[in-house]
Amino acid sequence: MAKAVKAARAAAPIPAAGNRRTEGERLVMPMIELKNIVKSYRRGSEELQILKNVSLSVEQGDFVAIIGPSGSGKSTLMNTIGLLDVPTSGSYVLEGVATEKMSDNRLAELRNTKIGFIFQQFNLLPKLNAIENVELPLVYSGVPRKERRERALRMLGLLGMEGRGHHKPSELSGGQQQRVAIARALAMQPSLLLADEPTGALDSRTGAEVLELMIQLNEQGNTIVLITHDAHIAESARRVVSIRDGQIVDDKRLAPLPAEPSRQEVAG
């Protein structure tokens, strides 16, 4: 995508949290709606605020890059969005469902079905091979063994990992491991892909490949939130949110939301 074009698509204003925005004839609700999120830790007598009143909405089909200095609270925000961590206060609505008072079981279900996590350190289980790693979310959602295997193989194939299914993570390169991790994140066809510095542990060439993959996934309709340190990577996103000291200090739109909000399935 040419930079000139991106610049021309000037940053669109972010809709206020909770507002429903019409696009064409359709009523679209944000996929993620964070309102006044505070996350603080108690260290001795003093209270350490990591997220200070963060409000953020993400639309379906968007590709949001979160940038900011180390320790600014990016991962903390991401973990909140991914339902791995609960905020100290504030509200979080995911696809129209309030998550604050949800039971552990329900949260686990949402992590399983709605969210695909991609980590900097891949976080594959070292004793399982690629297929078994990709199968894991399907195991927890109760997909039968045979179907699971087929879907995992298909996922790995789509990510150019055919023939590597029986390799353990330790027998794969960093880029390949991240592809397996992405396949795992996509296995349940989640509404939302969260990637915390997915290229951080990769060299620049494989990093670029993974980024290309993310762009492709977004073009196929996946909503993506990605954390990065790399300004170049952030430029590939449709929208860039800057965090400093636990607060959103900048929010730029580089490219508009895709016209068609309906999501294509990666693996039909």
Binding site: N105, R111, N112, T113, F117, N123, L124, L125, Y140
Partner: peptide
């Protein structure tokens, strides 16, 4: 942690 992050419930 990994298992929980991809949807394992307490029971699992």
């Amino acid at each position: 942690g990994i298992r929980k992050s991809i949807g394992a419930k307490r029971r699992n």
